[in-house]
Amino acid sequence: MNKKIGYGILILLVAAIAIYRYTYQDHRDISSEKATYVTTIPALEKEFATNDNLAFAKYQDQTIELTAKITAVDIENKAVILDNKVFATFNDSLPKDIVSGKTLKIKGRFLGYDELLEEFKMDQSSIIR
Rank of each mutant, 00 (worst) to 15 (best):
K34A: 14
L94S: 03
Q25K: 07
L12I: 13
T40G: 09
T23A: 05
L111W: 02
N84L: 04
D123S: 10
K105R: 15
S100Y: 03
A35Y: 12
I41A: 04
S100V: 13
D29K: 11
Y113R: 07
L54S: 13
D52F: 14
D74A: 14
D92R: 08
I98C: 01
G8K: 08
L13R: 04
T36M: 08
Y59P: 00
Y20E: 10
I30R: 02
R21V: 11
S100G: 12
A57C: 07
K58M: 09
Q124R: 05
I17N: 12
D29Y: 10
D83Q: 06
L54H: 10
I9K: 08
T67Q: 14
K85V: 01
L94H: 00
S125R: 03
T71Y: 05
A43M: 13
P42S: 07
E115S: 15
T50Y: 09
D74E: 15
G108D: 04
K85M: 06
N53L: 13
E76S: 13
T40H: 09
R109Y: 04
Q25C: 03
I17Q: 11
F48C: 10
E76D: 13
I98R: 02
T40W: 09
D92S: 11
L66A: 08
K96E: 12
K107F: 05
S125A: 15
K78D: 08
L82G: 01
A18T: 14
S32T: 15
E47R: 09
N53C: 06
Y59V: 05
V80A: 04
V86S: 00
Y59I: 05
Q60A: 10
A68Q: 00
Y20N: 12
S126E: 06
I64A: 03
H27V: 01
F120Y: 07
I41C: 04
A72I: 08
I70N: 01
E65R: 15
V99D: 09
A35T: 14
N84E: 06
L44Y: 03
S100K: 12
I5Y: 08
P95N: 05
S126P: 05
Y7F: 15
R28Y: 04
F48A: 09
V80W: 01
L111H: 01
L82D: 01
I5K: 09
I106A: 00
A15V: 15
D29F: 07
D74V: 13
Y113Q: 03
A16Y: 10
I127H: 02
D123K: 06
Q25I: 03
S93M: 13
T36W: 02
L10Y: 12
